[in-house]
């Protein structure tokens, strides 16, 4: 187990390094730069800025410098938010996004999985239809529509939730539903179909024939196997939900980190592009790792030795 973890950790680091390298050179290949302005800067000013941020050095030197800093845990200064370090931007923005995302993830797991099971067990009855319709709506309607709809109906017309901000618990309702809506619907459908598949298998029939009580069949024998695909989906999903969404955070005026993923690219804020990408990538590979461990715990047939 320990050997496995060390091996995985090394491969995760290698993955991150490759991502860092690819991102670094890809972002530098797009035209424009961090000092591209509506009004072109005087050449002397631009020169000073390029020197200040080490952008006048050859690209390979910049790459080397960046990687060295990265190994020291320093993500560099932002070009757009003058005087602010990327580390500080992430440590201020991530907890806010993660709180919204964490609540959304919990909602997805605690609501999605039971509803999926319910729909599977009551296949082709009213509860199944209701759940399936809701799930289809969740999958087909994009988050910005859900967000704007919630904001308009519950914020503006009814005045139940505040118009943006997270100043009290009501402020979380809109963003959590908007950011988690799709995944909730997806998990319900996944859980339902997976559960249907499992309950049709021979060993479940055998269990029934042996007269085991229904709840035991469902929770002990069927659900565990049916969870495998759901866990596979939930791992990476958590990484992406925790790091926030540009659209949802914009609609609900949440000062999280979701905006950096998009704005940094528009602004050619190189260090922020790198920082947010690597942060997300790190979270992602960790979640994939956790999913692999979860497999072994759920299904004893899966071994972690290799």
């Amino acid at each position: 187990m320990l050997k496995y973890c060390v091996k995985r950790a090394l491969s995760m680091l290698l993955t991150l390094f490759l991502i860092a390298t690819a991102t670094f050179f890809l972002m530098r290949a797009i035209p424009g730069g961090p000092f591209t302005r509506e009004r072109t800067l005087p050449p002397e000013v631009e020169k000073v800025l390029m020197e200040k941020y080490n952008l006048d050095a050859p690209l390979m030197v910049q790459y080397k410098d960046y990687i060295v800093d990265l190994f020291h845990g320093d993500l560099g200064p932002s070009f757009q938010k003058v005087g602010v370090r990327v580390n500080d931007m992430i440590s201020a923005g991530f907890p806010i996004s993660a709180k919204v995302g964490g609540i959304a993830s919990l909602m997805i797991i605690l609501v999605g999985i039971p509803l999926g099971i319910l729909a599977a067990l009551r296949k082709n009855t009213l509860p199944d239809y209701v759940v399936s319709i809701l799930a289809t709506v969740g999958i087909t309607v994009p988050s910005f529509v859900i967000g704007a709809f919630i904001m308009y109906v519950f914020g503006e017309l009814l005045g139940w939730i505040p118009a943006g901000g997270l100043d009290n618990w009501k402020g979380y309702i809109g963003p959590v539903l908007a950011i988690g809506g799709f995944s909730l619907a997806f998990v319900i459908r996944l859980m339902r179909s997976s559960m249907l598949e499992v309950t049709g298998q021979d060993y479940i029939r055998t269990a029934r024939a042996n007269g085991l009580p229904g709840y035991k069949i469902v929770f002990k024998h069927a659900m565990k196997n049916a969870l495998i695909p759901v866990v596979t989906y939930i791992g990476p999903m958590v990484a992406s939900i925790l790091t926030g969404s540009f659209v949802v955070e914009k609609i609900f005026a949440i000062p999280g980190m979701g905006k950096y993923f998009v704005e940094s690219i528009t602004n050619r804020d190189y260090t922020v592009i790198m920082g947010t990408t690597l942060f997300f990538a790190a979270l992602y590979v960790v979640m994939v790792f956790l999913v692999d461990i979860a497999y072994a715990l759920i299904d004893p047939r899966i071994k972690l030795n290799d």
Binding site: P95, L106, I293, L297
Partner: peptide, 30 residues
Amino acid sequence: ALLLAMVMLVSVFAACGTTTSSSTPAGDSS
């Protein structure tokens, strides 16, 4: 084993939750 898996998943969220409430005066809007 199953319990452990659940606990792990939940602890991931819990960890996120605690960072939020305990740190970053600049960001915590609550």
